[in-house]
Design a protein around this nucleic acid. Structure first.
Lengths: 215, 215
DNA sequence: TATAAATGTTAGACTAGTCTAACATTTTTT
DNA sequence: AAAAAATGTTAGACTAGTCTAACATTTATA
């Protein structure tokens, strides 16, 4: 598979995640590529049995295509974790580098990365890491916004990668694995009073809660 | 620069290393690409002022081209060291992976690699690692195994950190900066008769010579 | 030095991935 | 249900990098 095909597969997978059906227009928008270009790539991927495609109908990944996408995702997420935990880069810095490293062809390299990380199941953004056969772990992290008052959770990821958000998390010393205890939930605006790592007390707005994944 | 252009520059630099002049034929052979293809790329690189080229004449890197090549070489050699020393891969395994990683665009990544390795000046073969401006350290450390009989050298590094090797060096009172004079080279097994610090006379096996870097 | 061999160059074709302009179909609105 | 808007498709062009076949120049050799 070419680098370009891999990027299309990743996009296809991402679009298939949020339930809605996949259209040429949405792929084009996501990849910032014109529709006719997407159209021809869609035909190409269809010939390779990576997607199911009929003119004017919506597009779906085949099992084969989905597996390929998950294998790329695996490399991406392992890389992000490696850059952060082994190399000490910041959350906000790792994505762009991982976008490049995910295309490396070397089982040896990624297996060693996996090993050095202790075979992790989630990446720094809380996304599950597919195994080497392209299968996903069953466990799923929950947004803090759906959690209950009076309980304790562990931060397992974030749903937003904006630098401003990540900077905020750093400012309250919140990292993967940090403990979050919900002491109260404000009914009116769904903001939460929380205690972080048993120490810092603060308020999370609803927007923040929606973007924190916990276990 | 494209990945392909980078590979041509690397090849050009490598060919320029061994003194002989650079021909289309030699580039083609090294990259396993047909001569007409090389010919057109040579024109392209010439337009970009990375090489000096006139029809039927031999090819030379410009200063600009040489600098670019050295920056890629820097990334390659840092990566090899990283894969070996940080990730624990074998020396024979790292080259192919480094060939891919050297094309990553991320100063952040390579600066961190450099930092984690302690800003090394030489790779384990004694090859110099260009700095981030594409400049070479002035002096080139050479494995003792490549040195000449009858000359004097200074120990500038070792390529092996096994306790047994370092203990041996201590036992003959050899330290960084110590003088090594080669008095004879045994042709059969490449072992060397040496005089250390003008005093101790002993024999270094070929293996020892390969692991001592001198200036 | 004339000819043969080696090397270099040009011309033209092909693929992957991109584009714009024009046309087709489906979906939404009136 | 007709018209308008949105979306999808086709046709054809362009670039980078590759190739083969044919031609040109330089170098080596008889």
């Amino acid at each position: 598979m070419t680098l370009t095909e891999e990027n299309y597969l990743k996009a296809l997978h991402r679009l298939s995640q949020n339930g809605e059906s996949i259209s040429v227009k949405r792929i084009a928008a996501l990849l910032d590529i014109k529709m006719p270009t997407v159209n021809s790539m869609v035909k190409n991927l269809s010939e390779k049995k990576l997607i199911k495609y009929e003119k004017y109908k919506s597009i779906e990944l085949t099992e084969k295509g989905r597996k390929q996408a998950l294998l790329i995702l695996r490399k991406h997420r392992l890389t992000e974790l490696f850059l952060k935990d082994v190399m000490g880069l910041g959350w906000e810095e790792v994505h762009d580098i991982a976008e490049q490293i995910e295309h490396l062809q070397s089982d040896l390299f990624f297996n060693r990365v996996d090993e050095m990380l202790g075979y992790p199941k989630f990446d720094p953004h809380g996304e599950p890491i597919p195994d080497s056969h392209g299968r996903l772990p069953q466990l799923k992290a929950t947004p803090l916004s759906l959690c209950q008052s009076g309980k304790k959770y562990q931060l397992s990821g974030v749903l937003n990668n904006d630098a401003s958000f990540l900077t905020y998390l750093n400012s309250v010393d919140l990292q993967l694995g940090s403990q979050i205890e919900i002491t109260a939930i404000q009914e009116f605006d769904k903001s939460m009073a929380v205690k972080l790592n048993g120490k810092i007390k603060t308020i999370f707005s609803a927007l923040i809660c929606q973007n924190l994944l916990v276990l």
